[in-house]
């Protein structure tokens, strides 16, 4: 199977602070890959470099063979990024927001319409899509944004904390969307989370990140077996020496 993402010795320096300290991992095509770790571990910085928002200090990142530094505009055509604290334009309706975003990726009016209808189905927001997004609850907004990230059927969806801060039902819906949609359409997913249980449920493989480095990588079941742990939380604690 070919590689969707290749991250090699990635370093990002912010002034005196080394946010990433030589991160290396690969993601196979069609895989749901999770970056997990505590706040400040370097997850978001890694995602931001992969989605061409910021430049690496050193190291290399390729998305489907495209270099994120030198071929950034090409990379943007095959990815879709959902930031952790993303928002929607408050004075646009949900439908208008989806249409606005769809127009960047899709050419014809019929394609745009089909894309929005798909997003409407993913989000499950129904008639509420006609309302302005400023009237949405946090959960509804997140469902809209997840739908936006997936509706274009990107080759790689980069989801930063897709269900963070949501109540049980909204979080459940969002996870179900990702799992089902990704498998149906063969989309590769890179997601980050500090919720190990969520990652365990969703991901085919994970990389545990701490202080800007990948400390361990593998399939959740194998990692649990290897470290003789009940869940990934315990694996992480053992790896970083908390337990």
């Amino acid at each position: 199977m070919s590689l969707a993402v290749e991250v090699k010795s990635l370093v990002k320096q912010f002034g005196n602070i080394r946010a990433l300290d030589g991160i290396t991992f690969n993601i196979k095509e069609g895989e749901i890959f999770g970056l997990i770790g505590p706040n400040g571990a370097g997850k978001t910085t890694t995602l931001r470099i992969i989605c061409t928002l910021i430049l690496p200090t050193s190291g290399a990142v390729k998305v489907f063979g495209l270099d994120v530094v030198n071929q950034a505009s090409e990379v943007r055509k095959v990815i879709s990024y959902l930031p952790e604290e993303a928002g929607a334009y408050p004075n646009l309706s949900g439908w208008e927001y989806l249409e606005f975003m769809a127009r960047f990726s899709k050419g014809s009016a019929s394609e745009v319409k089909r894309t929005i209808e798909e997003a409407a189905a993913i989000s499950g927001l129904g008639e509420r899509l006609k309302d302005k997004t400023k009237t949405y609850s946090k959960g509804m907004k997140r469902r809209l944004l997840v739908a936006r990230a997936l509706m274009t059927r990107p080759k790689l969806a980069i989801l930063d904390e897709p269900a963070s801060g949501l109540d049980v039902l909204h979080a459940y819906h969002v996870r179900e969307i990702i799992k089902r949609y990704v498998k149906e359409h063969g989309v590769t997913v890179l997601l980050s989370s500090h919720n190990m249980l969520e990652v365990e449920y969703l991901c085919d493989r994970v990389a545990l990140v701490n202080k800007g480095k990948v400390v361990v990588e593998g399939e959740p079941q194998k990692l649990k077996a290897k470290f003789n742990s009940a869940n990934l939380e315990e694996v992480f604690a053992k790896v970083v020496g908390y337990a």
Partner: peptide, 14 residues
């Protein structure tokens, strides 16, 4: 402020 810029900067638009 509305956290829409990051998304906008990653879509395929100049």
């Amino acid at each position: 402020e509305e956290k829409t810029l990051e998304t906008l900067l990653t879509v395929p638009v100049d």
